[in-house]
Nucleic acid binder design. Sequence first.
RNA 1: GUGGGCGUGGCCAAGUGGUUAAGGCGCCAGGUUGUGGCCCUGGAGAUCGAGGGUUCAAUUCCCUUCGCCCACCCCA
Length: 421
Amino acid sequence: MFKTPRGTVDILPDDQPYWRHVEAQATELCERFGYRRIDTPIFEESGLFVRSVGEATDVVEKETYSFSDRSGDSMTLRPEATAGVCRAYLQHGMHVLPQPVRLYSVSAPMFRYDRPQAGRQRQFHHVNVEAIGDPDASVDSEVVELAWRFFAGVGLRNLTLVLNSIGDQACRPGYLEALRRYYEPLVPGLCADCKRRFHENPLRLLDCKKESCQPHAREAPRSLDHLCEACRAHWDELTASLDLVALPYTVDHRLVRGLDYYTRTVFEVLPPAEGAQSTLGGGGRYDGLIEQLEGRPTPGVGFACGVERIILNMKRQGVTLAQQAPVKAVVAYVGGAAKGPALKLASDLRAAGLSVVLAPAGKSLKAQMRFAGALQASYVLIMGDDEVRDGTVTLKEMAGGEQRQVPVADAATTLEPRWVL
RNA sequence: GUGGGCGUGGCCAAGUGGUUAAGGCGCCAGGUUGUGGCCCUGGAGAUCGAGGGUUCAAUUCCCUUCGCCCACCCCA
C-alpha cells in the first residue's frame, strides 16, 4: 500500500481548522501591516539557494531536495522562502516601487531532507514576511512586532522573544576573530560537535546545548560588544523602537542563525516548553543578500515561522477551534421513483445556498436516517412515492424530531429562516 | 548521518511456544409495513510490518530488513 513519503503528512479534515485559523490570522495581520501577498515557485534553480542561503550551511549542504529536470538543469525544492522572494523582487523590478516592498506568504511549502521528528518534517510550511529596500531599524522593529503579534493572534501564550545583532561585513570579521581567539585554547575541552564548529562556523559554538560547553559559551565574547558604529546605532534604535511598542524581548548574545545571509538583527520566538525543536519562528536582516543575487545593493529584513510547529504548540496549549460546520440537510428517499426528484431537490436546495447531501443509494430509510444522524445534519428531507405523487416533501427536524409535509417548491424557503440556527 | 523506543483488523488495544488471535471505537445489517440519536442482536474486517532462522509447533525466541516515533546534528 502506498503511504505518505517519509517526513510528509496528510493534513486531514479534523486538522484543517488549525490551518485555516493560522492562515486567516496571518493574512489579516500581514495586510494590516501593509504587506502584500506573494507566492513564488516551490522549486528554483539550485544556484539560487547556494548563493543565498550559503554553500557551507547544513541546509544547502545536506538538506536540499535537488534534481535535474529533463533538460538537465539542476533544480531545488525551496528550503526557505527568502531567496525566492528576493529573486522575485529583482526579476520584477520591484526597486521601482515605493521602498520598502512589503511581501508575505502563507502556508508556503518548504522542503528539507532531514530526519523527521517532533515538529520537524521534510515538507513543512512557512508563514513568511519580507520587507525589502529599507535599511532603517524601524523596519526591523516592525517585522519583529508583526511576528510577535502573529503568535499572540493565533492564541499562543508565554512565548519568548530573543534578539541579537551579529553585525555586518564591517564588524563581523573582527568579532569572529575575537571568538576564535577566545575559543582556541578551549578546543581540547569542547564536545566533538563544537570542535567541528570551531572550524566550520564559530558562531555556532555559542548555542551548543551540551552542559560542558555552556560555560564557555556564556563567557564568550559578545557580538554586541564588537559592533561597528553603524551597527551599534542600528541596534540602539531597534531596541528603543521595541521598547516604544512594549515588546518584551530578551537580548541573547548567543543567538545566531543558521543561514549565512543574516546581518545585524537576528531574532527568534520560542515556546514556553524548552526542549527540542523549540524554535517557532525566526528572522532577521539580510542587507547583503540581494547583492549576492546580482542585484544592486539592497537591504532587507524578514521573518519566517513554521505552521506545523505553531499548530503543535496551539494543541499543547489547549487552543481549541470549531470544526467545519456539518451539512445542514440530508435528502433521503424511498423507492426508485423518488430518486430523481430527491436528486433534483438536493440540487435546488444547494442552489438556494443550503449545504445538502443526498443520502447514499440502496439503503433503507432507517439506514439513511442513521447516515443523517452521523453527519449531524439538522434536517432530513424525505422523498417517497406519496411525496412524489403530491409534489411535496417530508421535512424532519432532527433535534426535536417533529416533521411535516411541505410542497417541494417551498422546501428552500421553509428551511431558509431556520437553517440559520 | 548517529543513538534509543516501538511495530497485533480503519483507529485504540489484550494476549500466549501449540485447537477457530480477546475487547472497545468505527463500519455494515437487523430489532415487522417509509424514519436517526440510546439500547439489543448479528456481520464484515488481521497471512499478529516483511524476510529468514531455531523448534514437532511461533504472533509470542533469535537474526536481518523496512516503517514509525523520540533524541542528537541542524532548523521551522
